[in-house]
């Protein structure tokens, strides 16, 4: 039986991990490779690296990070942020990443999903969706550009379209819950789970082990992603997995 995946996410800027990491026991807490190793040892099932570099040099540095992670670790990882063309996808995957995550670039030019899926297979193409609930419309709306720009798409329609175009997985972030630490956005996840037949990664809102339990048992998410709860050592991947295992959720 397929196990539920726990995925730490690392924000990387100009080759360094950002967001006040509190790992005192490693030599260089800003080094993405060192942190990746820590999470691997804790039992992380996958890793996501989100490149938030603004400069061209930063993007090039990201490829070095990808190569180093692929050289030293034997778990799959996804790279997102600034991947705009088929060439970007090729470069990222050929240097050892397993998947790319497309966000604004896929909304701007949806054919990019199909181009990537045709070339490497759907399993390499993750479409990341930033969702915010719109009270007036009574549904979730897709935001791009790091959550700054609303689009015309409802999340449910865009998720369906992305899968139709070739997305092999949906990384669904609730902007309403992000940073709140009060649990994943279960109604949002349920709405998307109902309309797509590809794996869905829940993101935004993880504050405790219980929240992971809820997202796996109540809406049957395939994977759950978190950043600060792991970075600030509020818990570890290992603790979350032990909690889940004790309660009958299948984890590795």
């Amino acid at each position: 039986m397929l196990s539920k995946r726990i995925i730490p996410c690392l924000d990387v800027k100009e080759g360094r991990v950002v967001k006040g990491i509190q790992f005192v026991d490693i030599r260089d807490a800003g080094d993405p490779v060192e942190l990746a190793k820590v999470y691997d040892e804790q039992g992380a099932d996958e890793l996501v690296f989100l490149d938030i570099s603004a400069t061209h040099e930063g993007k090039k540095t990201m490829i070095d990070v990808v190569r180093k992670v692929a050289s030293e670790l034997a778990i799959p990882f996804t790279v997102g942020g600034g991947i705009r063309t088929l060439e970007d996808i090729k470069e990222t995957l050929r240097n050892g990443a397993d998947k790319v995550s497309l966000n604004s670039s896929a909304v701007n030019r949806p054919e990019l999903i199909t181009e990537g899926a045709n070339y490497f297979g759907s399993q390499c193409i993750v479409v990341a969706i930033d969702a915010r609930y719109d009270e007036e419309k009574g549904t979730w709306i897709v935001y791009t550009h790091g959550g700054r720009k609303p689009t015309e798409w409802t999340v449910v329609d865009w998720a369906k379209e992305a899968v139709r175009l070739g997305a092999g997985e949906i990384l669904l972030t609730s902007m309403n819950q992000d940073g709140e630490k009060s649990g994943f956005d279960l109604p949002l996840l349920e709405a998307v789970q109902d309309v797509v037949q590809v794996p869905v990664i829940a993101s935004g809102g993880a504050g405790s082990s219980e929240h992971f339990y809820d997202v796996f048992t109540e809406v049957n998410a395939d994977a759950a992603l978190a950043a600060s709860i792991f970075h600030y050592k509020e818990t570890s991947v290992q603790n979350v997995k032990e909690y889940l295992k004790e309660r009958g959720v299948v984890v590795r």
Partner: peptide, 12 residues
């Protein structure tokens, strides 16, 4: 009953 494809993740 429908199930998800691809088969993606850690399996025993």
């Amino acid at each position: 009953k429908p199930y998800k494809v691809p088969h993606m993740g850690w399996n025993q």
